[in-house]
Design a protein around this nucleic acid. Structure first.
Length: 728
DNA sequence: AAAAAAC
């Protein structure tokens, strides 16, 4: 039903816009310079069920959709070979065009086809497969699907009924549907997996010989770990070296199992607390023995944020597991300009063109050690300028390393920047590319969701800096199309996130493909001991930085918590987003994000969604809509929680409270960037107050809890609507 | 438990 409404309602306006938004600025910057050439005849609409015209277009669709169907595979092969030919002409033009073709026609069809759009949403979870089946069920089954969304159980029944889907199952290991069906095949594996999570470190060992271990040795593993390691160390020169040098770390390892249990199991922490103080003291004295760290007292080492009581200090250590950091005094460091820090003239000019005339504190802190070739861990609060803090010295360093050398055709990349989401990778490239170009270096983006051809083409021509997400990078690595052996500097942006469950192992494999002993940099607003998994293996004597007095709570963000009745939630949200400024709404699930966007849209507040169920084109486009101000409301999952920078977001609404304090910090950090002000509102029910209090406590955020009901002035005040009305 | 990340 809602779908019927949408087509008639707010949708139209939305759909028209994409035409003009055809390409995103980020993508354009990179490879499209000469290629704006729009659709050619024979365009297709890959992402919309109704239209799947010519055979040509079918090929492209296959690209975007499932690579699983036999027919598709054929088409893809044809297309692939075609692509292989293209590079000879121009890498840039071809892929871009085919991409455009795919997109644009689709849009125009969209408009004609309102229902189509909403179907997309409905179909998303099962995307690739749905498309294949669309012709058949489109007409009849749509409504059913919309119910499915709301009603997951219904879906699972569908699947059971459809033989085709059971094949799908095989194809989509990651699909949410799998869960329903896992019991059958995973019965044996499942329990094992959950153990895996608990014993994360064990996984890395599994890698070497997964099949055997993952099934048999789970419980024992955590104990074996320590026994295993020495053996492994023998295999890895770098590692064993590290360990010998770092007593503190080997202690960490011993502690690790406990740590990972903590994550899974909070209560366990209270037990650890008894241990931890001891640990941290063990660690710190040792670390202080190192030259760099003797300079700073223990306490400020750990945490530059002022913590008064020793008891509080201890708690902070435990809860945050913060890394030992060298506090950088902003006052003393900011005296120097970028040039004084060692960056070349061109680079300094490029920085100025980006609006970075003089270094922010975190930048002042990290440029020198990075230029010196040190491994660096850096924590700077959200919006503090971390991208430039690693981007500028990275470019300078690569430049110096290549001084006097020709840039050969087909050269392998010398630097790698990894990000957890495609949008963030794009954004980082937006900054780093400007810096790189200013000194004649080239960057390329390597991320999923788009055809490989253009990326591979760029690599063939030769690039200096690769920026991307782990999945596609590893993919191209395995295909032999990406050579990381010459990589001298690797950056993990959102480094702590890159150490989490789904990321750690791919990231480790990628890092192992970089040059032995090459420089590694980890940046995040919430860098904690979780990164030990990577630090232990890949970093040598890392310098650890954070900026004194620059903790998250010292920022320019006002935090508020509204305690509401669950039944009022939708309306309160609708009221909050009905405002003048840019608003970012976070939802816990893709489906809810989608639903809220539709709700707002239907209510007359133009809104778009951003989540992993959208194709990359729409993701990029929807984010760009907020950036450009074409819409003021973006409803996103945590895909947008980290790193994404949009100017002027002055209100962040958490429709669902986050589960983790880190998530809270990152989400709220989408506002109040670079010294601007912003408000973060979190909606919770009464039952959630306690959990929320604990979370805010961990985040070290002060936020009043305010009961709110429909129509309260409070809501008007937060949305700023009164002000907006006056202005209007 | 969800989300993200390859095809």
């Amino acid at each position: 039903m809602p779908k019927n409404k949408k087509p008639a309602g707010g949708r139209p306006a939305k759909n028209f816009e994409p035409r003009y938004a055809a390409q995103t600025s980020f993508q354009d910057r990179k490879r499209r310079p000469g290629t704006e050439g729009p659709a050619k005849p024979g365009s297709k609409s890959p992402s919309h069920r109704g239209y799947r015209p010519e055979a040509e277009s079918t090929g492209d669709k296959g690209r975007w959709n499932a690579s699983d169907r036999a027919g598709r595979t054929e088409a893809r092969n044809i297309r692939t070979s075609a692509r292989d030919d293209r590079p000879a002409r121009s890498f840039e033009d071809r892929p871009a065009r085919s991409f455009d073709r795919t997109e644009r026609p689709a849009r125009s069809f969209d408009r004609t086809d309102r229902p189509a759009r909403s179907f997309d949403r409905t179909d998303r979870p099962a995307r690739s497969f749905d498309r294949d089946e669309r012709p058949r069920r489109d007409a009849g089954e749509r409504p059913a699907r919309s119910f499915d969304r709301t009603d997951r159980p219904a879906r699972s029944f569908d699947r059971t009924d459809r033989p085709a889907r059971s094949f799908d199952r095989t194809d989509r290991p990651a699909r949410s549907f799998d869960r329903d069906e896992r019991p059958r095949r995973d019965a044996g594996e499942r329990p094992a997996r959950s153990f895996d999570r608990t014993d994360r470190p064990a996984r890395s060992f599994d890698r070497t010989d997964r099949p055997a271990r993952s099934f048999d040795e789970r419980p024992a593993r955590s104990f074996e770990r320590r026994d295993d390691r020495p053996a492994r160390n023998d295999d890895r020169p770098a590692r064993s070296f590290d360990r010998t040098d770092r007593p503190a770390r080997s202690f960490d390892r011993t502690d690790r199992p406990a740590r990972s249990f903590d994550r899974t199991d909070r209560p366990a922490r209270s037990f650890d607390r008894d241990d931890r103080p001891a640990r941290s003291f063990d660690d710190r004295p040792r670390r202080d023995d190192r030259p760099r760290r003797t300079e700073t007292p223990n306490r400020s080492d750990w945490n530059a944020t002022p913590k008064r009581s020793a008891e509080h200090d201890q708690r902070v250590d435990v809860v945050h597991e913060r890394l030992q950091a060298q506090a950088v005094d902003a006052a003393t460091e900011t005296g120097a300009g970028f040039a004084e820090l060692g960056l070349g003239d061109n680079l300094v000019r490029a920085l100025a063109s980006l609006g970075a005339a003089s270094p922010f504190p975190i930048q002042a802190a990290t440029v020198k050690p990075i230029l010196d070739g040190r491994d660096v861990l850096a924590r700077g609060r959200t919006g503090s300028g971390k991208t430039i803090a690693f981007g500028a010295p990275l470019v300078e360093r690569i430049l110096r390393a290549q001084a006097g050398q020709r840039r050969e055709f087909g050269r392998s990349p010398k630097a790698l920047i990894l990000a957890p989401t495609r949008e963030l990778a794009l954004q980082i490239d937006g900054t780093v590319q400007v810096l790189a170009r200013s000194v004649g270096l080239f960057t390329t983006q390597i991320y999923g969701g788009v055809p490989q051809a253009r990326q591979v083409g760029a690599l063939k021509k030769g690039v200096d800096i690769v920026i991307g997400t782990p999945g596609r990078i590893e993919d191209l690595l395995n295909q032999g199309k990406l050579d990381l052996s010459q990589v001298q500097v690797t950056v993990l942006d959102e480094g702590d996130h890159m150490c989490e469950l789904g990321f750690l192992e791919p990231v480790q494999r990628i890092l192992r493909a970089t040059a032995d002993g090459s420089q590694k940099l980890l940046f995040s607003a919430t860098l904690d001991r979780e990164v030990a998994a990577l630090v232990d293996e890949f970093l040598v004597e890392p310098a650890v930085y954070e900026v004194a007095g620059e903790d998250q709570d010292s920022g320019t963000i006002e935090h508020r918590v509204l305690v509401i009745d669950h039944r009022d939630k939708a309306e309160i949200l609708g009221s909050l987003v009905d405002r003048a400024g840019k608003t970012l709404v976070f939802a816990r699930t893709r489906a809810y994000a989608e639903m809220l966007a539709e709700q707002f849209d239907d209510a007359g507040v133009a809104a778009v969604a951003l989540h992993g169920d959208l194709n990359q084109q729409k993701r990029t486009r929807n984010l760009e809509k907020l950036t450009s101000g074409r819409v003021n409301v973006l409803v996103a999952t945590d895909v947008a929680a980290r790193g994404i920078h949009v100017d002027d977001i002055d209100l962040v609404i958490q429709a669902d409270a986050p589960d983790e304090y880190k998530t809270y910090l990152h989400r709220s950090g989408r506002t109040g960037r670079a010294g601007r002000t912003g408000t973060v509102v979190t909606l919770i029910t009464r039952q959630r107050q306690r959990r929320m209090t604990e979370l805010l406590d961990r985040a070290e955020i002060q936020a009043p809890f305010e009961p709110a009901q429909l129509g309260d002035d409070l809501i008007e005040e937060i949305s700023g609507r009164q002000l907006a009305n006056v202005t209007a």
